[in-house]
Design a protein around this nucleic acid. Structure first.
Lengths: 231, 231
DNA sequence: ACCTGAACACCGTTCAAGT
DNA sequence: ACCTGAACACCGTTCAAGT
């Protein structure tokens, strides 16, 4: 019962720690992942983790590393627009497999090398497509979290008819416009008829932005921003 | 010393709790706001808060309530595009005053009435502008967190030349494209010459989206999405 | 009706010690 | 070099009690 188990499990190392952390988050949710819970999973005392990871922040960075590694490499010979779209949709697929990754990515304050590599390659796609440095800068900001394949779904986040289903009559009275837009689902043949398709909404907005970028690029857009004061 | 202080401070109520919570978050940061710390601020024992707020989640909801209340009401007689832009920029101003509000807003899972009111009025602006129910739906999703005046700043979040300043030479070698786009700041007269202006980037992307919405609306856009399977 | 006090089951992380 | 054990200073929240 209390025999030594040390020989039955491999030595701990950073790789085993970060892999186990990702698997644990997939399994029990990120909010339940603690240093203590993870150490338990690895059959080790909590403090043993601190030899391989400086603290919890670094553990989260290490988890991001794993996730970013799962994103497809850039498409070899594609025009900028396709290359960007494919990369972003691949990132989106990864985040769908690891639903917790979104909020962890958001919470990182210092970018790690893998994160910078990903962004660097995406900047390269725009520059390679002939975008000016100036426009590329703004375009990267405009993408925001969308370059990682996610956005804040703050409007009808539960996925379509849920808001309507939970409170049918009050919705109609207090929030008629929302009810109209959310509730059209049940009685017409438009998009909303099929409920709210996250992928469709994501691609809709992504295309809108990419088309906008293309239009500005082709028009030879340059920023007309001036310094606030004449002096 | 240990005399009764009960009479010197007003009775606790929900309003005093939520106001104090907002002030405390402004002052010490959201991560330091705990039920215990807040109760201390109010000169009361931790459990006293639970008479006015069911739990910490509800406290955060109450804080969001205060924040949303600070957003300007809709402009009276403005076209949809101006109305939407003004409302969003007002929300942005509020979030700049309460930097913690962004992440709290993101973390809410169930929308409270004030949040639904805000979204309802914004949906109304598009419908009032003649947008179809269908297009309005997609447009609201495309706005995402931008309708609350914020986005995930994941690209050069520190505000321009910081990334370059902290590691000048390694950046140039490992991440040449990022360095180019971030570093152009110091030696030309374009936008990036003035460092990275959050407000400019926000309005750039907002305008791109609003212009895109307008174009689709004027073209009488309808969704061409079909159900995945023929049957 | 509102506030208190003690307790429970957790956290991340330190330090000094073991092998 | 790597792992352990005990301890510290926190959490949110319960329960039963006070006024």
């Amino acid at each position: 019962m209390t025999e030594k188990l040390a020989s039955t499990r491999p030595r701990l190392n950073r790789d085993r720690v970060q892999t186990a952390a990702v698997a644990l988050a997939d399994h029990i949710g990120i909010e339940a992942v603690s240093m203590r819970r993870l150490s338990e999973e690895l059959g080790v005392v909590p403090m043993a983790l601190y030899k391989h990871v400086a603290n919890k922040e670094e553990l989260l960075d290490a988890m991001v590393e794993v996730i970013v590694g799962e994103i497809d490499p850039p498409a070899a010979d594609a025009a900028w627009k396709d290359a960007v779209r494919l990369r972003i949709l691949s990132a989106r697929d990864v985040l769908l497999r690891h639903p917790w990754a979104r909020q962890v990515l958001e919470s990182r304050k210092h970018q790690t090398p893998v994160v910078l590599d990903y962004m660097n390659s995406m900047v390269g796609m725009f520059l390679g497509g002939g975008f000016s440095v100036d426009l590329t800068h703004h375009v990267m900001h405009a993408l925001g979290s969308r370059m990682w394949g996610f956005t804040q779904e703050l409007f009808l986040p539960s996925g379509g008819s849920a808001a309507e289903a939970t409170m049918p009559r009050e919705m109609n009275e207090r929030y008629p416009h929302i009810a109209l837009v959310a509730g059209a689902a049940s009685h017409d043949d438009s998009v909303v008829a099929h409920g709210c398709d996250d992928r469709f909404e994501f691609e809709f907005a992504l295309s809108l932005l990419l088309d906008g970028f293309e239009r500005l690029h082709e028009a030879g857009w340059v920023s007309s921003r001036r310094t606030p004061s004449p002096r």
